[in-house]
Design a protein around this nucleic acid. Sequence first.
DNA 1: AAGAGATCGAACCGATCGGTACTATCTCAG
DNA 2: CTGAGATAGTACCGATCGGTTCGATCTCTT
Lengths: 196, 196
Amino acid sequence: MPVTKGTALDPARTREAILAAATELLYRRGLDGVGVAELCAAVGASKETLYRHFGSKDGLIQAVLEARSDRVHAWISTAVATAPDPAAELHAVFEALGGWFEQPEFRGCAIVNAATQRHSPPARLVAVRHLDRYLEMFTDIAARAGVAEPGELGGQLLILLEGATVVADHHRADGVARLAGRAALTLLHATEKSQP
Amino acid sequence: MPVTKGTALDPARTREAILAAATELLYRRGLDGVGVAELCAAVGASKETLYRHFGSKDGLIQAVLEARSDRVHAWISTAVATAPDPAAELHAVFEALGGWFEQPEFRGCAIVNAATQRHSPPARLVAVRHLDRYLEMFTDIAARAGVAEPGELGGQLLILLEGATVVADHHRADGVARLAGRAALTLLHATEKSQP
DNA sequence: AAGAGATCGAACCGATCGGTACTATCTCAG
DNA sequence: CTGAGATAGTACCGATCGGTTCGATCTCTT
């Protein structure tokens, strides 16, 4: 049945619905673990609709990744914004991360996972920008804390965040975020102390 | 031509040859990026030979991952063994890591990548044991350094190692290992100082 | 009222997937 | 010398892949 009778025709909403369903499925089963046909079935859309909105499976994947990157950074930024000082900001970031790791559907960072599966420009570019934003955020926190080399500490905090995500995904999830959070604060304090 | 004339018949060597070629190709292009036919062509072996030795593509993948995990840990252990004290051991680990990151064929940790692509028991188990061995190594180093809670520091060092690997793969490779290495030493010294 | 655009559902495309079967031919152990 | 096992090469299997096309049918804009 074409265009279910009584349904409002809203391309933008259709696009979002496809995006949402694809985000979940591709994250859970991997980029190569879900075919376009199954994707369409899960959305309740036809192939033609999907291809009109995204052009190709890779186009859909890219749209999914960019939207996800934006959402993740908005979420982390919110956590940071509620904290009163740099140390509390770091604590907030890793506490938020811990809440994510505990969710049963947690499967690592979708953007990094995608770049691992498709080691090609589109996915890699999204990943680079994703990590760039993390690095900028951490460097800002380090700068606000008044450390001598914010870039150095920022990079180390990025390593802690990504490392915690990988370990939570592939080793043990419980306590990893707090472990990384304590390491982050230790690094912050050590760097502060050494530069009075 | 079956069994090229003059070639010694050595199943064990054949197996190793398949393993070696598959290790390189699957690492470079991803588990789903290479078909069995291409794999056979790269090895110079027939499908029947591959399937007789490994049973299935997944069997081959598992053999590849386990061999790789063994090799990586032997390599890291060698780096550790040459250092005179815990701090030097950590330095050696991250220096070795840096050398790996700089290689043009570096594509992240093959075992973690595989577990990301196949989020199913076989690959996941190899990954868990792989990280277990890292954790044990780092915990031992922490214990030798005499810190109060070697497990805590060991876990943090594991996070640094995996984080550095991810960042080197997906963000920037140069200097990441040394950045993580300095963080590792900072954590070690901070933990030592707080527990006289 | 009419045309434009959106959507579904299905058929269809060539290519490729992992895996099997078979033959011819070689090596190697007895 | 003989039989068992290893191998290359090829053809083949059904399934699935990403992607295209088409007609029917709906909504929306004018």
